[in-house]
Design a protein around this nucleic acid. Sequence first.
DNA 1: TTTATATTTAACCAAATGGTTAAATATAAT
DNA 2: ATTATATTTAACCATTTGGTTAAATATAAA
Lengths: 122, 122
Amino acid sequence: MVKYNETALDATFHALADPTRRAILARLSLGQASVGELADPFEISLPAVSKHLKVLEGADLITRHRDGRVSRMEFNPDAMMGAVDWITHYKKFWESQLDRLARYLDETKPTGEDTNATNTKD
Amino acid sequence: MVKYNETALDATFHALADPTRRAILARLSLGQASVGELADPFEISLPAVSKHLKVLEGADLITRHRDGRVSRMEFNPDAMMGAVDWITHYKKFWESQLDRLARYLDETKPTGEDTNATNTKD
DNA sequence: TTTATATTTAACCAAATGGTTAAATATAAT
DNA sequence: ATTATATTTAACCATTTGGTTAAATATAAA
């Protein structure tokens, strides 16, 4: 049996289980932002956002670069690999969906292009 | 922007964020089992397992087939596609990991074989 | 050096989570 | 008809979660 890092999986899946945190990651995927910038589109308070950021940081999904009094947050998508690995383990149980995913990945395989921020799927 | 089903993502990621529930899914991926059989390897009580099953059922990750007084639970891996889709959206940010995943998927692309329960990665 | 800005910490709260034991329910077996 | 088995429901509990407001901290700007 492959031994997964259960604690890391707990942290990753838990971090992704909240819509505000996913929205923050979506925002950060477009480029780094300060805590205030991240909080802006949400109706919740700054401390609430600060807590979400700590959860994301704890799951290693973002990293913090302090720049004076501003915290610049950066997306760290590598941390999602563990989760993808875990799910992918069950690939043999969803071959039809695998086809779809494989096709999707083929279409968008890094060729040197398609590394810009514009995503045609959006 | 692609509109994801946030509620479904909440449910899926939350369901996967617990190690007992992931273990239950791992067990069910080998074949269906009753509630009692699922509870056996865990030290927690039957009602606790029953609650976990309800969470997994709510996320549509398992389905229940009542057979007399026995509930046979079945794995429904399709429900994980939403989560994979969401994560995959960030593919352009982890090209090196994508390579690894694409290679993995290529190696195991459904050819008619490789649909048995033996996984060489384990 | 005083003031404004960015963010975190503290203290608090209601709801959800993951567990328990005991009782209820439903079906199967004797 | 009675008893055993499989599972769920109910009632409870401690901890965690996701939010709040007010105060503290740290840095930049005037």
